[in-house]
Every structure is written in structure tokens, then in C-alpha cells.
């Protein structure tokens, strides 16, 4: 009986020590972990707005730059990030998130369009579960760089069509990723659909978005 009681007391105290130590460590790193996650997304937003972020910027510096140049607002319950000129008053572009199914799981992209909503500024993927080295290469500069400066004209247009590497060149053709057919097909599909829907909404509400972004200062995503 005594042995059993000792087992219980021993386990209780050992658990207390372990969880106590972990809780303390969690408190110590929580802020840093949160900042890492925020800064990662902020870096993607800045980059798709064609506001380059130096590679050696620390999370804190990225956040600082973001606070200076980007304002957040929303339309139809979706977040819109408004990129501002250095003076902090003139909009230079709009960024929003678009997502859809990938091969292994959902893919989340951040899309930046210019202030006149006539061309893309940039596009990147910030969360996905695609195979590293194959579909996972959608985040590489060689792939995402192709979206910069692409024109967005006309209604119901097909924004992108993916071609095999070295396919016919054209303003809205993108070289797909060799060996990642499934990922490419799905990305093409959801981007074309999401962009067509949301850019229309943005165009219809441009004035509202700009004024609400400029009126409220410093909300963070």
C-alpha cells in the first residue's frame, strides 16, 4: 500500500517539475515564436507588393518595415493589405490571400496587384504541403518571379495558363514545374478562379478600401 502511494506521489511531483519547466520555457519563447510567424507572413506580403525585404532582416525589422508601408483593411470579410508609398499616403498596390486545394493539402497564396488594378505586382505561396523538391518548388523565385508584372485585363479572362518548361511564350503563360503536374494543374485552377472573383470585388470597392486603409493606422494581421 505504501509503495503504491509513493508511486502516485512520485509521478505527481515528477510531472509537476517537467510541466513547470516546459511552461516556463514556453513563456520565455512565446513572444519570439509569435513574432517569427507574424514576420514570415509580413515578409510575403511586402514582397508581393514589390517592396523588397533584405534577406538578412530580422523578424523585428520586417515588422517595422511592414508597419511603415502597409495598412490592413477588409472587404467582404476578407483581409486586404494596402501597400503605401514612402510618404505613407499614396497607395502603390493591394495584396490579398487566395487559397485552394493542392495535391496533398490546401495551398495558400498571397497575391499583389498594382494601385490601378491592371497588373500583378507579385505572387507567392506561404503555406502548403506539396512534396519537397517537386510541388514544393512553387515557392521558388524561378517560379513565383514569372507572375510579376503580368497584365490583368478584361472580364472573365483566364489569368494564367501553365505551360511545360520552354513552352510558347506569352504575357500570361507561366512555365509549370516539371514533375509536379498535379500541383501545377491545381494551382492554375484555383488561382484563375479566385483571382477572377476577388479582383472584381476589389475593383468595385477600390475607393472604399483606400479610404478605410488610410483612416485607420496600425492594425496588424
Amino acid at each position: 500500500m505504501k509503495k503504491r502511494l509513493f508511486s502516485i506521489v512520485y509521478m505527481f511531483f515528477l510531472t509537476l517539475v517537467c510541466t513547470g519547466a516546459l511552461a516556463a520555457l514556453e513563456m520565455g519563447t512565446r513572444e519570439r515564436v509569435a513574432l517569427n510567424a507574424t514576420a514570415r507572413l509580413q515578409r510575403v506580403i511586402l514582397e508581393v507588393l514589390a517592396l523588397p525585404v533584405p534577406a538578412d532582416y530580422s523578424p523585428r525589422q520586417v515588422s517595422g518595415l511592414f508597419d511603415n508601408r502597409v495598412r490592413q483593411t477588409s472587404i467582404d470579410n476578407r483581409k486586404v493589405f494596402v501597400g503605401l508609398d514612402e510618404d505613407g499616403k499614396t497607395p502603390i498596390g493591394f495584396a490579398f490571400s487566395a487559397s485552394g486545394p493542392g495535391f496533398w493539402g490546401p495551398i495558400y497564396s498571397m497575391v499583389g496587384i498594382d494601385a490601378d488594378m491592371e497588373k500583378l505586382l507579385g505572387l507567392n505561396f506561404y503555406d502548403h504541403n506539396e512534396t519537397p523538391g517537386l510541388g514544393g518548388r512553387i515557392t521558388e523565385q524561378a517560379f513565383t518571379g514569372q507572375f510579376a508584372d503580368m497584365p490583368l485585363n478584361g472580364e472573365g479572362q483566364i489569368f494564367f495558363s501553365f505551360e511545360g518548361a520552354g513552352g510558347k511564350p506569352g504575357v500570361t503563360e507561366v512555365d509549370a514545374i516539371t514533375g509536379a503536374t498535379e500541383t501545377s494543374v491545381r494551382v492554375e485552377k484555383f488561382l484563375n478562379k479566385e483571382l477572377a472573383l476577388f479582383i472584381e470585388t476589389l475593383r468595385a470597392n477600390r475607393q472604399k478600401i483606400v479610404s478605410s486603409a488610410l483612416s485607420k493606422g496600425d492594425e496588424k494581421p
Binding site: L22, L25, T29, R32
Partner: peptide, 15 residues
């Protein structure tokens, strides 16, 4: 406990 320590350290310093 040790695994969680590693996980937290990676999340904080090598995200």
C-alpha cells in the same frame, strides 16, 4: 519533455 524543449527551440530560433 525533452522533445518539447527541442520543438520550442526550433520554433523560436530556426522557424
Amino acid at each position: 519533455s525533452y522533445v518539447i524543449v527541442v520543438d520550442m527551440a526550433l520554433k523560436a530560433y530556426l522557424p
